[in-house]
Design a binder for these strands. Structure first.
Lengths: 354, 354
DNA sequence: TATACGATTGACAGCGCTGTCATTTTTCAG
DNA sequence: CTGAAAAATGACAGCGCTGTCAATCGTATA
């Protein structure tokens, strides 16, 4: 006489169930699930069918406890723009899904004395297979090192000064700035104001270099009065624009190091009774949401953030595939191309009129 | 004679190491770490000291495999504004850190035929202790149910129509809209235009109700011409504003159901040679980044998104503490207060001048 | 047909913790 | 001071997988 236990939730399928249904050992099921070689094609199919029938999906905790892989990556960040984070995260999740990985997130204070320990510990206790470090964490001199030293793969995203010793993903900020400046030059502008970004931000310096390089390419002199400091905020953009407009010979075009500052500049120009782009052209940088909603919409440069995130995840997967020990860093890093987005804040053919 | 193995990474401390150093069994260490009762104070201290000395932190995979808790929550979403996601995530992470929980994220297509299965499976295989469902996932009729049925706690964030049967966290959208409209009324406005939000968004309907209720409170008639459809985008806000300005008797104030549409309205008003707030006052909703960068900065309503996220995490922790089976839903749900943010797009005392 | 060798498969241990339950120690009434 | 109950602690199994290594199968070669 059998005891029938009270009705309860249908138990989630385990590897043993699949093994039994397929008539093989759990180890063979494991082989199939992990795409290991040396399984007869017929057996492989049988196991796959059984797994599907039971809608089996391996338990991540058990996997990571028993094996080398956790199928989980971590995305760590500190303060970063909402748009950048959400786009990057979205791109990373897309690729993770494709490769059946999962993603955990964490926010850490770069300034904390023990950031490194906090991060390494978080990565170790969760057994993540790799870590994505967003700026400004990617600029920290030790986080990446310590992670690799602990045997955890890690990619620096847009580090200010990429070290050859660690894989990274970034954008060619300098060339983008050079192109944007070139856009002005082609339209005949010769007095181009430049609003610098936050001094602690590596990309800000690169954008400045691109601006200077473009002027040099064109054989134009550099007027120090045309470079004013900003801090990546709308307010700082307004202040900087005020200073540029107050010059004896104000610029006919303004290059702001990001969209926020560009939007601030547009407002100030309007307040001075001038018009963008008729009187003064403006460009931003980043192609944030603000760029398309500003009035007029900003000509800017788009970073392929989602693609960069996907590339970063691919890179982590690749490193894990080869084994965290024997990676060839130099071959892994990648620099992405930007895209010039022309909108109504710059007037095409301005120069031709002259 | 001892063999010295080649130099290698210092091994991460395990519970056995702590037990040995403290001179107790691993089970006692476990008790201390999990704040279980029945450990002598002196023993507790000894264990804590040992753990600290070895900078021990328990392995999450092992924990979740062996015990009931994984110390990991999941934040699942689909399309949602960048600001909402990043603020919510940030708030959730803050609380998770305080309570030594971790957070994984996932993005799912609400429209997919098998969303429910995808989500349940993702939650089961990662053994998360609870799931936070952001809109529009929180509006799906089955996701929450299935999660609870599978024994996984879950909180709906800002669901369009909260079910009594499931814990949720939301904002009193209707009252917020009523307050915002009241702000206009107090300034003496009597013709107030309303730009509606996306019809599929539950909050849009609530905001409309709040607007209508405020007019009724004031004994004002409702003019159907003053209500125009929008879709939560800047472009739709522009279109709606055009229609309002084209009326024989245009409104002296415009209530847009979100900041994007309000910003669009401001641009249109400016293009018509009118001034905000001198000629027409405007309010938005959400207090997004755009609200403070629009020109002029928008009077709007702020949602305490971070706090709501913290509340949601607390709720999950609470449910887990009591056991997922015996929760009292009605006691858990919580409605948060909004905050009126007055900026330069509305003119205080407008009415008094009359 | 017999032998060797690679391809395929399975037995079994164990990853680092916690749940269960037995055992020891302490406490306190009588 | 004794016994019983409560408090404190530990022994041990096992969570669901994968790594190791031994066993078995298939087949090409002599």
């Amino acid at each position: 006489m059998t005891m029938d236990t009270s009705p309860q939730r249908p138990r989630r399928a385990k590897i043993d169930d699949v093994a039994e249904l397929a008539g093989v050992s759990t180890k063979t099921v494991s082989r199939v699930l992990n795409n290991e070689p040396n399984v007869r094609a017929e057996t492989r199919e049988r196991v796959k069918a059984a797994a599907k029938k039971l809608s089996y999906s391996p338990d991540l905790s058990a996997r990571s406890l028993a094996g080398q892989r956790s199928y989980m990556f971590a995305l760590f960040y500190d303060t970063i723009s909402e748009g950048y984070l959400s786009k990057f995260q979205s791109g990373a999740l897309d690729r993770c899904r494709d490769r059946t990985y999962h993603l955990m997130v964490g926010r850490f204070d770069v300034e904390a004395a023990d950031v490194v320990e906090q991060i390494v510990q978080a990565a170790e206790r969760t057994r993540v297979d790799g870590v994505l470090l967003l700026p400004p964490l990617s600029d920290h001199p030790h986080i990446g090192e310590r992670l690799w030293a602990a045997g955890i793969a890690c990619v620096l995203i847009a580090p200010s000064n990429p070290q050859g010793s660690m894989p990274f993903i970034d954008l060619d900020d300098m060339n983008a700035a050079r192109t944007l400046t070139g856009h002005f030059l082609k339209q005949g502008h010769t007095r181009i104001g430049f609003i610098e970004g936050h001094t602690a931000h590596g990309a800000a310096a690169l954008r400045r270099l691109g601006y200077l390089a473009a002027l040099e390419d064109a054989g134009l002199p550099i007027d120090p009065d045309l470079l004013v400091q900003g801090w990546f905020t709308v307010a700082s953009g307004r202040l900087a624009a005020e200073r540029l407009l107050a010059l004896n010979s104000p610029p006919t075009a303004i290059f702001a190091s990001n969209d926020e500052m560009a939007a601030g500049a547009e407002i100030v120009i309007f307040e001075h009774g001038l018009s963008v782009p008729r009187d003064i052209s403006v460009v931003g940088f980043d192609d944030s949401l603000l760029a398309s909603t500003a009035s007029p919409p900003l000509t800017t440069v788009r970073q392929p953030i989602e693609e960069m995130a996907q590339g970063a995840v691919d890179l982590l997967i690749e490193v894990n595939r080869k084994g965290v020990a024997g990676y060839d860093v130099t071959a892994e890093s990648r620099r992405y191309d930007f895209e010039l987005v022309v909108r109504q804040s710059t007037v095409p053919g301005f120069g031709e009129k002259a």
